[in-house]
Simulated assay, not measured.
Amino acid sequence: MFQRKLPADPSALVLAIVALCMAILFGCCGLSFVGLALSIIGLVSANKSLKEYLVNPETYSHNSRENVNTARIINIIALVINGLITLSFVVYLVITGSFMFSAIRDEMNKSKNDTLSRVDDEEWDYEAEEDSIYIYTDSLNQPQDSLNQE
């Protein structure tokens, strides 16, 4: 009796190896999400093939089952590695973005406060000048005797 290969025998193994290589080679470049997608596709196809083997074990070869099981294990390893790299990259982007946003917000608030304080200072100086003019004119209008008495 002729025994066939499982449907995911070559493809799941190729996807597992490519996903693992992408994690090792391109993980630092932010391309680990591609390896993550490849490992998920490989894992799903390997699991489907293993379920198919459990339904009809006599139809498929034992060697093909071992290959798919190996591909499943490598896909799980690639999934974990790519997932950790992707998660750390996302956390890095969120932290960097929040620092940049807070710096931009602080700079905008600083420029608003500087503008408002300059306007308030100018008004206050104007009022202080007016008061000093009135005090000066009042002292000029007072007779000299009243100034000496004080």
Rank of each mutant, 00 (worst) to 15 (best):
F2V: 13
R4T: 10
L6Q: 05
P7L: 00
P7A: 06
P7E: 02
P7Y: 01
P7M: 03
D9E: 12
D9L: 02
P10E: 14
S11I: 14
A12V: 02
L13K: 07
L15D: 04
L15C: 05
A16P: 00
I17M: 04
V18F: 04
A19E: 01
A23G: 15
A23V: 09
L25Q: 09
F26W: 08
F26R: 05
F26V: 07
C29N: 12
C29Q: 12
G30M: 02
L31P: 04
L31H: 04
S32C: 12
F33Q: 10
V34P: 01
V34A: 08
G35T: 00
G35D: 02
L36W: 04
L36K: 06
L36A: 08
L36C: 09
L38A: 03
I41N: 01
L43K: 07
S45G: 07
N47A: 14
L50E: 05
K51Q: 11
K51R: 14
E52M: 12
L54N: 15
V55N: 11
N56S: 12
T59G: 07
S61R: 09
H62Y: 12
N63G: 13
N63R: 12
S64G: 05
S64D: 04
R65Q: 14
R65M: 15
N69W: 12
T70F: 09
A71E: 09
I77K: 03
A78R: 07
A78L: 07
A78F: 07
N82R: 09
N82F: 10
G83R: 06
I85L: 11
S88L: 00
V90Y: 13
Y92I: 06
L93P: 03
S98H: 11
F99D: 14
M100V: 07
S102Y: 08
A103Q: 14
A103G: 11
D106K: 15
E107S: 12
E107K: 09
S117I: 13
S117C: 00
S117R: 12
E123W: 11
E123V: 14
W124K: 15
W124S: 15
E130F: 10
D131Y: 11
D131G: 02
S132F: 13
I133G: 02
I135G: 02
Y136K: 10
Y136A: 02
D138C: 06
L140A: 13
Q142Y: 10
Q144N: 07
Q144K: 10
D145M: 11
D145C: 07
Q149K: 11
